[in-house]
Simulated scan of single mutants.
Amino acid sequence: MDMEGATTSSCFPQPHMERKMSAMTCEIFNELRLEGKLCDVVIKVNGFEFSAHKNILCSCSSYFRALFTSGWNNTEKKVYNIPGVSPDMMKLIIEYAYTRTVPITPDNVEKLLAAADQFNIMGIVRGCCEFLKSKLCLDNCIGICKLTDYYYCPELRQKAYMFILHNFEEMMKVSAEFLELSVTELRDIIEKDELNVKQEDAVFEAILKWISHDPQNRKQYISVLLPKVGGFDGINRLRSAEAYSPVANTWRTIPTMFNPRSNFGIEVVDDLLFVVGGFNGFTTTFNVECYDEKTEEWYDAHDMGIYRSALSCCVVPGLANVGEYTACREHLPGLAQRDEVKHSASTSTLPV
């Protein structure tokens, strides 16, 4: 997560849910701590020792409250070894317990958020989230969004995700983090209704850029990602189709589909490319057709029994009722006939 150039720091006070202390009380107890007077606990982190008062730590952290009052610990115990945190972060945590303010900077925000989450100090968690919201940009929005996978920060996650959607076209051109998205993460982004792009070409460009970053491992996902773009020119749903060669990095026009559609599902079975459901500009559809690259022609497949759009498809091998699926559209003049015509009863009730 890149926040290069962001050098400011912020101090965030406690939220209402933490137990408040008057400014005078905070000042007095902090002076006692710094002087080492009336301290009844020593927090040890990697050989560093921090003297403190149990009541003060308990007042801002349920972690310390449970630690000091647990039946597993003797109430007279004074020294506690705390794992999983650095001395620098523990120093900030203890200072926050006494002053209810904490300096947050681009250099410490991630470690501080992790420490605050560990000790369940919601004031610091909120402060870190507000700081990260204020630093959202094209370079770091994906990293900030991914950070919320590890910590409960729903408002920050929503803010970062909407930033990605609203600035997708610009973000994918400059963000190194974009190239490291998983196929699931990229698919989820480009299928959102809130995705802000001037033309569908921008989404095609983003998909190709992502695939080109690791073509050997990512070209297999073309059939997963391209249907999310849909055949839509901004006015009409389209019948036209193009095929992409990841080896040559080129597109070529192929015969048009029978039905205009966008937001369809797509999958390959026995070297046939199936296009399933979608939206035709007026209604969600249930029809299915498939393309044979060998004959360079489209064929009807057995229609689904349920209207579906913006769907995903997968191949499930080994099911006894899935195996025969295609059927020629014999009544269309000029359509070549296949030597073998198949159909599937399974697609009448289930997605392909």
Rank of each mutant, 00 (worst) to 15 (best):
M17Y: 14
E18F: 00
K20G: 09
K20M: 10
K20T: 07
K20D: 14
K20V: 06
M21P: 03
M21Q: 06
M21K: 04
S22H: 02
S22Y: 05
S22E: 08
S22G: 04
A23Y: 15
A23C: 12
A23R: 09
A23K: 11
A23F: 13
M24K: 11
M24F: 03
M24S: 06
M24R: 11
T25G: 04
T25F: 11
T25S: 11
C26Q: 11
C26K: 14
E27G: 09
E27I: 03
E27K: 12
I28K: 15
I28E: 15
I28P: 11
F29S: 07
F29M: 15
N30V: 04
N30Q: 12
N30E: 12
N30W: 09
N30R: 14
N30D: 14
N30K: 11
E31M: 00
E31Q: 02
R33T: 11
L34H: 14
L34M: 14
L34P: 10
L34Y: 10
L34D: 15
E35Q: 03
E35M: 00
E35R: 01
E35K: 00
E35I: 00
E35P: 00
G36R: 08
G36V: 07
K37Y: 07
K37Q: 07
K37F: 03
K37L: 06
L38R: 03
L38A: 02
C39L: 02
C39F: 03
C39W: 03
D40P: 09
D40N: 12
D40R: 06
V41L: 10
V41F: 13
V41N: 13
V41C: 15
V41Y: 14
V42T: 10
V42K: 02
V42R: 02
V42E: 08
I43H: 02
I43Y: 04
I43T: 03
V45P: 04
V45E: 04
N46H: 10
N46E: 15
N46F: 10
